[in-house]
Design a protein around this nucleic acid. Sequence first.
DNA 1: CACAAATGTAAATGTTTGTTTACTTAGGCC
DNA 2: GGCCTAAGTAAACAAACATTTACATTTGTG
Lengths: 194, 194
Amino acid sequence: MSTEQVPRRRRNAADTRQLLLHVARLRFIRDGYAATTVRDIADDAGVNVALINRYFTSKEGLFEACLGMAASDINRDVDNITLDQITARMANKIATGTDEGSLQDSLMMLLRTSGEERVNLMRREILHAVSEKLAAAAGRPADEETLLRAQVVLATAIGITLLRTSLRLAPIANADEQDLIGPLTDVVNALLPR
Amino acid sequence: MSTEQVPRRRRNAADTRQLLLHVARLRFIRDGYAATTVRDIADDAGVNVALINRYFTSKEGLFEACLGMAASDINRDVDNITLDQITARMANKIATGTDEGSLQDSLMMLLRTSGEERVNLMRREILHAVSEKLAAAAGRPADEETLLRAQVVLATAIGITLLRTSLRLAPIANADEQDLIGPLTDVVNALLPR
DNA sequence: CACAAATGTAAATGTTTGTTTACTTAGGCC
DNA sequence: GGCCTAAGTAAACAAACATTTACATTTGTG
């Protein structure tokens, strides 16, 4: 049996910064901002606590950086999306496991709050952009009602993600892509008919 | 101008207990478990911190009591509900402001976690019961797919509540009962066709 | 009215928190 | 190859935290 020694990482600021981002994101998503301690994060990364303040000035700064990552990931997912793709991509991205930058992760990250008002504004802007892209995919004039309906689609995605990852409620938590695609198709077609 | 002195409440264990429950629920819903301090709660109630431990043994105990309240409230809301009522009641209960025991409050409370596994089990049981009642309202045999579809309805309610109360995302955050009833009807009919 | 139990408070306790400081170690460049 | 800067660490810091203890006040009752 190997000694499970992590292959001793060489000193590299960029790599360490990235590593901290990665493990912090997982913690923030799973436990939330307040319940996550900077020592938790540092231990996960196998580095000293002080590095968090060195690279991100504060716990808050690290959180904002994680939020920025989630924003990029989720924007990439919904960019130039078409109405036909919404259902399939939602089912796929939601059902697919929690790998780095998955839609589930990004959505959960967007639900986390640090209490800072600036962060709340960021979250609102990101989600507003997402719902506008969904509304645009519907192809209809971007009126208030279309936007509202797009946000209900978004709400469904968020709710499903919550029930699956945070609450682990059966059977939806164990549903695979194939199980989800039917209900999701019905919801999207009902909310954003072509 | 009056001195704004709160009408000095007489000593009464039951009343104080209830008062603590009330203000704690609001805090837990708004700020989450970890971000809420027992001093916040005690100050809101205008009583000494030690009373929390006296009446609920711990912060955790107080949280569980709040969760129990939310469970009762939400069960009352979905008990014996019929398919026709789901849409109207969802739209009404979601749109209606955040008064004591509102559906929005109960749902938000169910999303809060203290980290304790026992609490996670409670939340899962409550939501499972809710989704079973929704499935029962659909009138169809209680197979897995009906339950899954009922949980997607629940997910939509949760998502909308989150977007409204926690993220305050416009325009869904400002939508009134009349604005919501259309999209909600479409979603419920699509997921649980009669 | 007195007194005992119930209700409430103030203050102290020991952790845990995020952050800072002073120090050590590794790595690239002339 | 020595050296200077970048990268990382250990230890200490004060503030905030949940909880406990010891004490005060109110309230119902004989």
